[in-house]
Design a binder for these strands. Structure first.
Lengths: 348, 348
DNA sequence: GAATTTTCCGGGAACGATTGCGTAAATAAA
DNA sequence: TTTATTTACGCAATCGTTCCCGGAAAATTC
């Protein structure tokens, strides 16, 4: 019966109390011994340490969290992890967060505002110590984010940021990246360059479209609004891209090139052009932002704008942990702007 | 001075104690009112509920965890999230875990045994309630995993499992999937079919290679050990694939097709064949396991074996949560075997 | 009207750790 | 020897909840 009882019993980790009882000490002494306090004799310390090691004692992180009022976890919200750009960012984040003993809770908005709101709510309820976020393309209401920020939650934006909230931001030079890509197309002789862009709500969209238009103007070309198609869900819904591309190829004269402002859109356009049996780059050239590692294997060797995603994640996390661990409220916030890289089939 | 003090003060969430004080009640009463206990009068309940709602009261999950001895979080270890197969699994996991109020802590082994050990250690120290794992290709020692399992941590294997540990497993019919792919190549007339496989330590590798060999035998072809190349790090190190492919194309007669047993290897082979300027499928055909969404955009339209990754994640999580929430130790464990799908350019 | 049962609520321990404070014994200083 | 100072430890509060008890007041029964 005893044996059975034991078998049915759930595993219980050893606590400081167990050690105290076994060694005939008080819990305070054990605690202090484990933390190598100076007010514990060397002899006692040794006994405790040895015993703890033998039982493979691990302080209960939940009890610690309760005491310290810190969960030692940070939340991160991106559009989707099944996207090289974001998964590279996440790798960067993890590399520094884990280093510093923080757990990373990854969430996805799937470019859906309601999902983002729910997720944010959920993360807040799990008492994360800080938040890294790249807002969804569908985000048009910042109430919740603002109120969380005001109530003291440290936030750092990555890639897609929000002007109205004053905090650290880690971004790339979107204007320059888009400019370079468009110039690249222009240098190759394309003149009717369309643009398939992400949601207008996104600041990165505005910047990238800005760079695109600046490049056109550099070549004395007047940007044509009809050649710019916005995708509210950032290409998450394929039919958005479907519509955008079909509308573009119906134009006359047809565009001879497309510049896409994000990973999902670049591959989305490719998919659509293929479906319409349009040769790339022969009939219509394509370029755009992308961090996919499979780009070089695509049937059309395209040039892409690559972002230093891993580094972005690292830098953002460093800033966030700084915010979290700072004794006094931080007042001056930085915006770190990294450079993109134009990668063509030749220099890959 | 007061104002300053407030400004410097960190945000503190409202607790049950605050409510009790404000309403001149005891904490027990408030707690019970919030949990809708029958021993609290309707009037009191209403007062408490309203006040709590007004202050947007959220019970502190950490305190709850401490009390219930449950973290309400599950850990998951995969090779890497920047891999469509795994990220689809993760999406499946999240869809059911979040539904049930569990947080998912995602970790990556990067096909590295030491990293996996560290990660496992870390997750255990964060007192997860359960673990979903797809072991790394480099895992050759199961000590730690076994001891965690014995000490009572609920574990469910996804995709890559381990015979020695008796618990729920969610896998696909690897044998059949590989068999189908190889038969597909055979039907198209290829006869010298090589195989680029994952680490021999993985049970999925053994099963897939088994299916491959069975198909060959079906065609009266004798499997040639020299045509099977194993990659210990599952293609995580590109030079593994590099070596494998170069060795294969040096053979004479050269193979006329390659079957790759995993996502990473399939794209890895493609990369190598391209680098060697070998036409696919003209000179050497290629097929393999892959869940990448970009497959249809690759320069060579290849046929792939697709796994129901999302569903695998869902099922595995359901089983895990069952284990976690079961009152009594579960004794009979299931192995759920799902079917793969052969996707060719035509039926895509 | 007395006895019994409900109803409703508060006190306080517990979860697992840390830490300020108090204090006995040991040591040092006077 | 007496007093002051360390040294080395224990007690108890604390973090935010839940929940077992116990008990006063109200409602019910006889």
């Amino acid at each position: 019966m005893k044996a059975l009882a034991v078998k049915e019993m759930k595993y219980k980790a050893t606590t400081i109390k167990d050690i105290a009882k076994a060694l005939n000490l008080s819990t305070s002494t054990v605690s202090r011994a484990l933390r190598d306090s100076h007010e514990i004799s060397a002899a006692t310390k040794q006994v405790v340490l040895e015993y703890a090691a033998r039982l493979n004692f691990q302080p209960n992180p939940i009890a610690l969290s309760l005491k310290e009022r810190k969960s030692h976890s940070i939340g991160i919200i991106v559009a989707e992890i099944a996207n090289s750009f974001f998964s590279q960012i996440i790798n960067g984040i993890e590399s520094v967060a884990n280093e510093q003993g923080y757990t990373v809770i990854i969430s996805q908005s799937h470019e859906n505002f309601e999902k983002e709101v729910r997720t944010l709510q959920y993360l807040a309820s799990r008492s994360i110590d800080g938040l890294l976020i790249s807002v969804s393309s569908a985000t048009n209401d910042l109430q919740q984010l603002k109120s969380l920020h005001q109530s003291g939650l440290p936030i750092v934006f990555v890639d897609r940021s929000v002007e109205e909230i004053n905090t650290h931001k880690v971004v790339v030079d979107n204007y320059q990246g888009a400019y370079n890509a468009t110039i690249h197309l222009l240098e190759q002789g394309y003149r009717r360059i369309a643009c398939v862009a992400n949601s207008e709500h996104l600041n990165i969209t505005r910047e990238r479209v800005g760079g695109y238009m600046a490049a056109l103007q550099e070549y004395q070309l007047k940007p044509d609004p009809g050649m710019i198609k916005y995708c509210f869900h950032g290409g998450m819904l394929l039919n958005e891209v479907e519509t955008a591309v079909s509308e573009l190829i119906k134009l006359k004269p047809k565009p001879d090139a497309i510049f896409a402002t994000s990973d999902k859109l670049t591959t989305g356009c490719m998919r659509m052009l293929k479906r319409h049996k349009i040769a790339v780059p022969k009939t219509i050239a394509l370029t755009g932002f992308s961090n996919s590692e499979l780009i070089e294997l695509l049937h059309a060797p395209i040039t892409v704008v690559q972002q230093p995603a891993f580094e972005m994640g690292q830098v953002a996390t460093e800033l966030l942990l700084q915010l979290i661990e700072s004794k006094r409220p931080v007042k001056d916030f930085k915006t770190i702007k990294l450079q993109t890289r134009l990668v063509s089939p030749e220099n890959r």
